[in-house]
Design a protein around this nucleic acid. Structure first.
Lengths: 159, 159
DNA sequence: GAATCACTACTCGGATAGGGTGTGTCCGAGTATACATGG
DNA sequence: CCATGTATACTCGGACACACCCTATCCGAGTAGTGATTC
């Protein structure tokens, strides 16, 4: 079970967009170059964020992406769902209702105990994701590297 | 992000092995036929459980698999790790240290704030998995379908 | 000088190929059973 | 009748193809800015 790399890229990009400020949009190419990522592919992830309403996109020169709302209104969960989709990792295929092991009649109305338990665990994961917003992450990152925001802004100003 | 189907199969198989009883081993073919699953592929998953010490395997006629320890000593986590591997779903590739955005000198000793947050969420997931053992699942399944264990034993007796 | 128009460069957006991991299958090594055989 | 050896059938275990999704890329639609042109 592996999570898409796009999630990591999207999260970093959101923080970078916050550091860039709400004034000017930043193109996917700039965001990608900042971390040596494939520009076209990062663009794909940013499109997903735009569809989810996390960022807004502007075409044309001076265009690009900017945050649609403040960082503290964006949870990890929002980004993960936007990039990975909302489907659960564990998907019950109801194998207990196939073959000789299938219930005698009328099917089982109650849901599979295994699926129930797995869903409970995933719920804990989702709760933990939803409980953390990107502003907390930004604060921690700035504590580790206070000069990072200014470095990014300076680099964006050139060219 | 999708979890392997083998996890679902392995969990059902463990409960079925418990219902079968510790006396006789059950072959992968029988377990697979019970739910109309591909026998050879289920065998692969059971091998993973055997490597993890969750079940024991016996070759030859009258051979097969049986539980290595009681159900209440097997957590969901054990099975998931056995089948899926122990690696985290989110893997930090340290993109912040690539390209112009890389820190000035000596690298960042502290770990990435994003990776930290994602790991925290996954930890919640793992805790929830480890907190539930297969015996609880078996009890719930028997509450829903009390005749299931006997049906399985009867079917295993034939042929 | 000011307004208008065409042109250019740059952006997103979706449609289009390639690779890696999960999915599914196959055959060989090994063993307990059953049976035939001989004492 | 009992012991022994052999053949057999059945099991796991790992090695071998196939498919799907993530990864990566490309080109087209659309737009803001710029410059030239005209009144």
């Amino acid at each position: 079970m592996k999570m898409s790399e796009g999630v990591e890229w999207a999260l970093h990009s959101c923080v970078n967009l916050a550091w860039s400020g709400p004034d000017r949009a930043v193109s996917a190419a700039r965001l990608a170059a900042w971390h040596d990522l494939p520009a076209a592919y990062l663009n794909k992830q940013l499109q997903a964020l735009a569809r989810a309403g996390i960022v807004t996109s502007t075409p044309g020169p001076r265009g690009g992406f900017r945050l649609a709302r403040p960082l503290d209104a964006i949870s990890l969960m929002d980004v993960v769902v936007a990039v990975e989709g909302a489907e659960d990792a564990f998907r019950c295929t109801e194998i207990r209702q196939q073959g000789p092991g299938a219930g005698a009649a009328s099917g089982y109305p109650a849901d599979c105990a295994i699926a129930h338990a797995m869903t409970r665990a995933e719920l804990a994961w989702r709760r933990a994701l939803a409980a953390q917003n990107l502003d907390e992450i930004r604060q921690q990152a700035e504590r580790q590297a206070p000069e990072a925001p200014e470095r990014l802004r300076a680099w964006l100003a050139t060219r």
